[in-house]
């Protein structure tokens, strides 16, 4: 009984490892990857200060109950926030919550909703890059 061709065995082991390492959740990206992708789409570089100003500022273009990102995510995105229903929102800064900005579809869905609720329009690619740059720096 000789063992099967060693290289096949190795390949199978590698394949098994790949499967294990593959994301269990739909995690398909990282804050850095998203940041580069939005910068590329915008054709410009992100700016932390602009991101901070957008996030912490009070806006008037959106829905009256949600004038700011901080309405729900608070002035400190490393802390837990609260939806208007009282439900807890886990921290938004990736430094405090490693699940953030790891799933493209989720990020796009919430940028879509929340920019519209707060600003009354979509965020631009550059604004998304600014926001991720600032949140990742915390």
């Amino acid at each position: 009984m000789t063992s099967p061709i060693p290289s096949l065995k190795a390949a199978m082991a590698a394949a098994a490892l790949t499967v294990l390492a593959a994301p269990v959740l739909a995690q398909d990206t990282s804050p850095d990857q998203l940041l580069s992708a939005y910068e590329a789409e915008a054709g410009a570089s992100a700016d932390l200060a602009r991101g901070q100003a957008l996030f912490t500022g009070q806006h008037t273009g959106g829905k009256p109950d949600t004038p700011s990102c901080t309405t729900c995510h608070t002035m400190d995105p490393r802390a837990k926030g609260q939806a208007r229903t009282g439900k807890v929102i886990e921290p938004l800064a990736p430094g405090a919550n490693p699940e953030r900005f790891t799933e493209t579809a989720k990020v796009e869905k919430w940028f879509g909703r929340n920019c519209n609720s707060v600003l009354g329009r979509d965020c631009t690619a550059l604004e998304k890059a600014d926001l991720i740059a600032w949140l990742s720096s915390l």
Binding site: K63, T66, K109, G112, R113, N116
Partner: peptide, 11 residues
């Protein structure tokens, strides 16, 4: 859903 109790919850 785009104006769901004062929020955008669209899908």
């Amino acid at each position: 859903l785009d104006d769901h109790f004062g929020e955008d919850a669209s899908l």
